[in-house]
Design a protein around this nucleic acid. Structure first.
Lengths: 212, 212
DNA sequence: GCGCAATCTTGCGCAGTGTGCAATCTCGCG
DNA sequence: CGCGAGATTGCACACTGCGCAAGATTGCGC
């Protein structure tokens, strides 16, 4: 119930925290209702009601339903992105190893939410679009710390292509999984992802690193 | 003016053709108006009016404004995807070479439309979402012929990851270009893309091929 | 505790949207 | 020519996104 809410433990002012909480609750209720009744038969008012706020307030937090769910995806990804700042901590290993370590470090809950969202997006083009865009936003947020660690600009195109390829790979694997192997163990999904991430050549990323 | 319309020269029944034309005109007018006034200040009625049909008819063709623009992107990509069926024609070369050849084979007009759309999507998250999703649809359409040529299933995950990485790379490069080098020559954009595509390791794709 | 200012929430109104439905129009085909 | 499939349209209605202003809540200095 408060699974996503957990991720929003900031020690800011009470006001900030309350906002973050409402936001998280809205996103959470949105997932809950959509999984339950199907995306298109859930209205913004429904979500707002479930979260105990007005429709207007919903709009203060999210531009629309899809963005709300995308935000859930984003909170969910925070846990991974946070870890990515330890990217070069394993400087002896290759980038690919670091990525795999990151993926394996994510809690099971993370992958569950991923598959839930993937399930939802399957027959809702609008949602798929927004979740993809959310992915992009995640890439954007992940790039900054990594770029710093590697000592290159966040605008570095090579870096962006690399991170984008990884994110895309993960996304593709999850979709594939939901489509073909929905009932398998999460551990197998993880294997699927790490195996395929390994296919991506990150040697040029390692080169970026060695130049520092 | 009729640039996109050109792409829809099918020799089907007149009825089919007329539908395809209306569709193309709608998409075209949509781009035109959006480039001119900005995405958010163009209404569906505006587009419909410009195309000479009713608002209701617009909805018969597209679910919404964003999807309409995404369709323009799709028509635009048809020219590339059509070429991808000659993928293994150069069996002596590596996959990466084939991809580069494909990219260089696209007419300048293709890249112009790409950059126009990229420009539009820059500050419109909704549009960005839909165009990204359109990319996915393109990947979906491109995979089929390639899979056949390689003799693997279109569901083959390795293949999907590879094609996805390429599409993502192209997209990322175009966005980067629009953001940092808007006024440069299209030829330079092409160089940027082929250079970065080359960074993606497609050797495992070549292996898929050699197994046939 | 008190009061003020900043901030959040809410209801209202309105233009725009997505879609089912039924009437009408168009066009291909016999 | 006339029929029938299919395309277009207007209408209605629920939902949406958002500006606005009133009201509630919160943080802070005293």
């Amino acid at each position: 119930m408060t699974a996503l809410t957990e991720y929003t433990r900031t020690s800011a002012g009470r006001r900030e925290r309350k906002k973050a909480t409402t936001r998280a609750i809205l996103a959470e209720k949105a997932i809950e209702l959509c999984l339950q009744r199907g995306y298109s038969s859930v209205t913004v008012s429904d979500i707002a009601d479930a979260a105990g706020v007005s429709r207007r307030t919903f709009s203060n937090y999210f531009a629309n339903k899809a963005e709300c769910l995308a935000s859930a995806a984003q909170s969910n990804s925070d846990v991974i992105i946070a870890e990515s700042s330890g990217f070069t901590a394993y400087s002896e290993a290759s980038s690919i190893t670091a990525v795999q370590r990151m993926l394996r470090g994510a809690p099971e809950r993370f992958w569950i939410v991923c598959t839930e969202l993937a399930e939802l997006m399957q027959d809702e083009p609008e949602l798929e679009a927004y979740l993809r865009a959310g992915d992009l936003a995640n890439v954007e947020r992940a790039i900054e710390p990594i770029a710093i660690e590697l000592g290159v600009s966040p605008e570095n195109l090579t870096l962006r292509v690399a991170i984008g390829a990884i994110a895309n790979c993960i996304h593709t694997c999850i979709l594939h999984w939901v489509k073909h192997n929905r009932d398998g163990e999460i551990a197998d999904l993880l294997t699927l992802i790490t195996d395929h991430v390994a296919l991506i050549d990150l040697s040029w990323l390692d080169q970026l690193r060695s130049r520092t």
